[in-house]
């Protein structure tokens, strides 16, 4: 018995136990993976393409909501006053100082110019970054929240006129999706 221990305790049988266990473990993991991965979005869901939007009908101060990848897409034509109030903000003091703009590098700061490439057109995924509700747009006639942008009624997150989180539990600014202007009145999202 003592001799076996001084041989570092390894026998042919120990080796077989460990090897069998390891192969079995890998086999179970490999067999489990398809059952886990089937829950992820299917190729059909992944293949959902881009959307082209005609902007001619959108008036200054108006927001149009489109459906994009099953989620609301906000297209807001901002008034000069809304643009001015969005520019007049100290970015470093924001709860989320990053632009969250898929057209720009991740480290870009949330200056208004990097939230809306064309200042008049603010294009956002209309999903509150807290728990996914659709925020309500604020207009001068019907203000929502304290910052002139959006208020999420679910848990009280307030966004400004650049879609940046200003107050409430949401951790991030509203997401700017990938988009390109095809002409002055046509934008391709996605």
């Amino acid at each position: 018995m003592a001799a076996t221990i001084s041989d570092a305790g390894t026998t042919r049988r120990d080796f077989l136990y460990v090897a069998t266990g390891a192969v079995g473990g890998v086999g179970v993991a490999a067999a489990a993976w398809p059952f886990i991965d089937q829950m992820n979005p299917s190729t059909a869901a992944l293949a959902m393409g881009s959307t082209e939007i005609d902007l001619t009908a959108v008036q200054p101060g108006q927001q149009i909501v489109y459906k994009f990848r099953g989620q609301p897409l906000f297209v807001r034509r901002r008034t000069p006053a809304e643009i001015a109030s969005a520019k007049d903000v100290d970015v470093s003091a924001l709860p989320d100082p990053l632009a969250r703009n898929l057209n720009l590098p991740d480290s870009t700061l949330a200056n208004d110019a990097d939230r809306a490439t064309k200042p008049e057109w603010l294009i956002l995924v209309g999903v509150c970054t807290h728990l996914g509700c659709t925020p309500t747009v604020s207009t001068p006639q019907m203000p929502e929240g304290d910052y002139g942008g959006w208020l999420c009624h679910c848990h009280g997150s307030m966004y400004d006129t650049a879609g940046r989180i200003r107050k409430g539990p949401a951790p991030q600014n509203l997401l700017v999706p990938q988009y390109t202007f095809l002409s002055d009145t046509r934008v391709k999202v996605g």
Partner: peptide, 30 residues
């Protein structure tokens, strides 16, 4: 939407967990 989005609070992997639960990029047919 709200309950599944609770998982997005988990750092790093939260978003992937939510997508995995939805089977899509939002709550839908899947």
């Amino acid at each position: 939407t709200v309950i599944t989005n609770l998982f997005t609070a988990i750092p790093v992997v939260g978003g992937h967990i939510a997508t995995w639960l939805w089977g899509d990029f939002a709550v839908g047919d899947a």
